[in-house]
């Protein structure tokens, strides 16, 4: 390499060139922030501000008539937890079971749509999403018809003595399904199934089919191919799906309200009743915060455990 041709350029801070070099990137660097602005404002107004407000509410005492004042009454948290821990545990348990069921039902479904449905793919996809075209409430109410005491489903379950077993296990009540834990879990599973299927489908569909061929070519039987290639590669979908199912399911109150009885009330029902009936805003806010913190902790742990950060 010759060096004669390229003397180091002298520093010329006063030239237009170097000015441009200095200013343009600054302006350019700002552009992303300008583009982010609406989103940031949105977050501030509709997420951060309510959150701060909720935090402050949870530390207040008072009544509707006398007003609420921040008194840093942290005990509200302990009292709320002490009073309503059974509903917390129940919410987490129901949501967890529903999530597992969603995964068990949703994975084969997503797999079929992604790899086997062929030209029916879109049709099946629409069928999966179809329930969203009606309201959450109507969908849940429909389960009251499906699981009606005198309906064919419960009839069949009784005929097969399934309900004797489930009642002995405490997940149904006598010869009925409605107003039992099973009904609530069924409702949760059904209502959140699409949230599981869609991310699963997306991540399965992205898998190069040649990877399956490659695995087969490398002596993996179909089951092994699934375990070693397909499933690991669909982990981002599994993680996203379980989160999208678990989080709203844990906070849900409609399924428990409509399909459950007094013993199936979840933490969402408590928050709702504290807000609307009892008008105990601090307790309701504290409960919301505890729920949020608990879910956040569980989700963090889960993502760490599943080790999918670099795949997502």
């Amino acid at each position: 390499m010759t060096t004669t041709e390229t003397p180091a350029p002298p520093e010329r801070p006063d030239t237009a060139d170097s000015l441009e070099i200095r200013t343009t990137p600054v302006r350019k660097r700002l552009i992303p922030y300008w583009l982010l602005l609406p989103g940031i404002l949105w977050l501030i107004v509709f997420f951060a501000a309510p959150l701060v407000y909720q935090a402050s509410t949870s530390l207040q005492t008072g009544s509707l008539e006398e007003g609420f004042k921040v008194t840093w009454h942290v005990a509200t948290y302990w009292d709320a937890l002490a009073e309503y821990w059974p509903q917390f545990v129940r919410s987490v348990a129901y949501a967890a079971v529903a999530t597992v069921l969603c995964l068990a039902l949703g994975y084969p479904l997503a797999y079929l749509i992604a790899f086997k449905a062929g030209r029916w793919r879109n049709v099946v996809m629409i069928l999966v999403i179809a329930p969203f075209f009606t309201s959450f409430l109507i969908r849940t109410l429909a389960w009251k018809t499906i699981l009606a005491d005198g309906g064919p489903v419960v009839g069949a379950l009784n005929h097969l003595h399934v309900l004797d077993v489930t009642s002995a296990l405490g997940i149904t009540e006598g010869h009925r399904v409605l107003a039992t834990p099973l009904a609530v879990v069924c409702g949760l599973t059904y209502n959140f199934l699409p949230f599981m299927v869609l991310p699963l489908y997306t991540s399965l569909e992205r898998i190069d089919p040649r990877l399956h061929e490659a695995a087969g070519d490398l002596y993996a039987r179909p089951a092994t191919t699934f375990r070693r290639v397909t499933f690991p590669l669909s982990m981002p979908g599994v993680v996203a799906g379980t989160l999208l199912t678990f989080i709203p399911a844990a906070g849900d109150y409609i399924n428990a309200e409509l399909l459950g009885s007094t013993d199936q009330k979840m933490i969402g029902n408590v928050i709702q009743s504290q807000f609307l009936r009892v008008l105990d805003y601090p307790t309701a806010a504290a409960l919301s915060f505890i729920l949020m913190a608990a879910i956040l902790a569980m989700v963090t742990l889960y993502i760490r455990k599943s080790g999918t950060e670099d795949l997502v």
């Binding site: 501000a49 309510p50 701060v52 407000y53 909720q54 402050s56 509410t57 207040q60 008072g62 509707l64 008539e65 006398e66 007003g67 609420f68 004042k69 921040v70 928050i271 709702q272 807000f275 609307l276 805003y281 309701a284 806010a285 919301s288």
Partner: peptide, 22 residues
């Protein structure tokens, strides 16, 4: 449940005041 908080707040002013007026 969320909206009530905001509504009760009556905007950002109440937010900083941190309290719900009687």
């Amino acid at each position: 449940a969320g909206g009530a908080l905001a509504a009760v707040a009556g905007g950002a002013a109440a937010l900083s005041a941190c309290g719900i007026a009687p």
